[in-house]
């Protein structure tokens, strides 16, 4: 009833209905209250966001600031956050070290090959599992997780021996294959969830329009899950980009990647914090750029399937 009353009075000039004035005032007050509530909620959310950002970002910021510190500043007791004296010396030392540029190229090669391999294998595998739903498919997807359950060092040493026996020792290809064993299970699982969110009707419609099964996959389904593919690619790329143990066991002169070079700043005789953090900061740039470039797709991919049902 009150709804009717409000609707009626709101559509008429207030001077004709003086009794409507308090009601409008009440409505105004309610709206202001709501606005104030929204504002405070938004403020709280912003504060929480800021806190979360500081918590997540602090280690990286600390690393960044340390890379600009002088040698004695890097080991100050108690430690300081900001450099007392800013210097680029650590960057000069780190980037001037022999093998650093080569290690960057190796890291890029390895990560790109590993990401492509993961996608080429994971997309059809996930599509088959989600669309055909055979018992063997379900066993396969569970079995894919097994490699994630084994400690990497347990498969790293045999894998290194196998690569050496087929003549792939110390090559980016060997390391890429090893990295694919890490990223592939995750990629399959991720792609499965993305394919699940695509209605079958889309494919059936494409089939009615004359598409083959593969044509429907390529022309209809893949474009719909492109955000998911971007997310999967990012995860696969990161898994390879940051991987250390396999790189340590399987690379030497020709294919050593940057994480091993970064670790080399910690020696039995001391730790060169400045150079280590400088190289780590430089090494994080490509990943940050890639993430920014694909940001929209990643967000779209992460919400893909969120409204399924």
């Amino acid at each position: 009833m009150s709804t009717t009353s409000v609707t009626t009075t709101a559509s008429l000039p207030s001077s004709d209905f003086p009794e409507a004035q308090p009601l409008r005032q009440r409505r105004g007050a309610n709206r202001e209250g709501l606005e104030a509530g929204r504002r405070s909620t938004r403020t709280i959310l912003w504060i929480l966001l800021a806190v979360a950002m500081v918590l997540y970002g602090f280690p990286f910021l600390y690393l960044l600031f340390t890379s600009f510190k002088t040698p004695i500043d890097t080991i100050a007791v108690p430690p300081t956050i900001l450099p007392r004296e800013w210097t680029l010396e650590n960057y000069t030392n780190a980037l001037g070290r022999s093998g650093v540029l080569a290690s960057f190229i190796n890291s890029i090669q390895t990560a790109v090959i590993s990401t492509l391999l993961s996608l080429v294998l994971a997309v059809p595998a996930a599509y088959g599992i989600t669309r055909y739903k055979t018992p063997s498919g379900q066993v396969f997807i569970m079995a894919a997780l097994v490699t994630r359950m084994v400690p990497p060092v347990a498969i790293g040493i045999p894998l290194a021996s196998m690569m050496a026996s087929v003549g792939l020792s110390d090559t980016p290809i060997a390391l890429s294959i090893a990295h694919t064993t890490i990223s592939l299970p995750l990629s399959i699982w991720l792609m499965c969830s993305f394919f699940e969110s695509v209605p079958r009707d889309l494919e059936e419609a494409a089939t009615v329009d004359g598409c083959s099964r593969l044509g429907a996959l390529w022309r209809v389904v893949i474009p719909v899950v492109s955000g998911g593919i971007a997310v999967t690619a990012i995860f696969a790329f990161l898994a390879s980009w940051n991987e250390f143990l396999f790189a340590l066991l399987m690379t030497a002169i020709r294919s050593q990647t940057t994480p091993v070079v970064i670790a080399n700043f910690q020696t039995q005789f001391g730790l060169d914090w400045g150079s280590m953090t400088a190289l780590a900061a430089v090494y994080s740039i490509p990943v940050i750029l890639l993430t920014l470039l694909l940001q929209r797709k990643i967000v779209a991919g992460m919400t893909l399937g969120a409204v399924k049902g």
Binding site: G99, A102, I105, Q109, R254, S255
Partner: peptide
């Protein structure tokens, strides 16, 4: 990169 560097950028073959 693979062709140019002989499957690796680190230096000579083993």
């Amino acid at each position: 990169a693979l062709v140019a560097t002989g499957c690796g950028a680190g230096g000579p073959a083993p």
